[in-house]
Design a protein around this nucleic acid. Sequence first.
DNA 1: GTACTAACTGACTGGTCAGTCAGTGTAGCC
DNA 2: GGCTACACTGACTGACCAGTCAGTTAGTAC
Lengths: 198, 198
Amino acid sequence: MPKTSKKSAILAMATVLFANKGFTGTSMTEVASMADIAGATIFYHFKTKEDLFVSVLESVKTGIVQEFSLFFQEEQFDSGLEMLLGAIAFHLHLAGTNKEWFLLLRRHYIYELAAVNPICRRYLEDIYTCLVDIFEKALTLGQQDGSVSVASARKTALIILAMVDGIMQLESNNLYNAGSLYGELVASCRRMVENKQQ
Amino acid sequence: MPKTSKKSAILAMATVLFANKGFTGTSMTEVASMADIAGATIFYHFKTKEDLFVSVLESVKTGIVQEFSLFFQEEQFDSGLEMLLGAIAFHLHLAGTNKEWFLLLRRHYIYELAAVNPICRRYLEDIYTCLVDIFEKALTLGQQDGSVSVASARKTALIILAMVDGIMQLESNNLYNAGSLYGELVASCRRMVENKQQ
DNA sequence: GTACTAACTGACTGGTCAGTCAGTGTAGCC
DNA sequence: GGCTACACTGACTGACCAGTCAGTTAGTAC
């Protein structure tokens, strides 16, 4: 049994609970009982509830950055445009396999905390930089190989991120079956950035 | 002094607090002190905290539906495409003048409640129907007058809603200055739906 | 002035919460 | 065995919170 088994159990349970019930909606007692440990044990490993939350965010950051770098090490693309569409599809795929990560990032509390807590802000910036940079790199590559035509790679990358995020949110709201929009989303992005002069 | 002055003061303060701090993050005591009334007064007008929340949502629904119908009574558009871009711009404008409305709609609690409380679900559906239908009508009109070319007006309307929502969220996160993306957003939508054959 | 009603309130309650503390168990080292 | 350090825990505390209730105030009708 590894030394940190209880600590990592706390982190895993806290991730699920913070993502699904928010910061104020999750109690430390609940985390403890889900992880099958005594309530006070959490405060041995994490100073405060906020400290636990930041640690959860750190593990999410590590996970996202790792997944994306793994994906782009293995995949090859014919053009910048194909790389962009591949990145969008992978983003949507990841949102399906790791729902908690993206649910957590949609919690408003995290951005309130980031305004006050520089470590939290740092982790958030790392995550967003990772996500935006991939779209931006693909767009810049596409501008060079002629597959993409946009005014600003950076701004377009941000708009595409907002778009993907918005679709993910629509789906988690359970009002529309946004899953059926994935194909349409990729097609719309293609129409938006494709170079028609080619 | 109108008879309902205290009731409407409670509603107004609750809207701001629920939008900015969420359901669990807002206490009835806080609402009462912000509205400058005794704590028990809230429970005279609203049965429970959840009841107050649903009443807040109802007033937000009424506000959004009213604003949009007013706008489209007064404005005239040359084409379906122009109507779509006008609707997007108005949506962004409204998000600036009534931040609380859209902050509230981004709270996860509201969708959890909607899964359990049919009245809450109804109000949410009314709001989303209002927002999506305007985009869809504009796109359908554009398909008829030849200014727009899309596969499905409905699906595209949902994607544009997700896009606008995503940009609004990016801005409220305070990580990027998304306000500078408004122009780019409208231009991107134009590229996405415009009929180039015309 | 009396009777009735609606709006409102102070004082209270039972329950939950984050965080503390004084310990217990245990593994490694001499 | 004795010592130290770490992981862990049960029992506790003070603060806060949603909701209750008995009672006050003020307007209106007769």
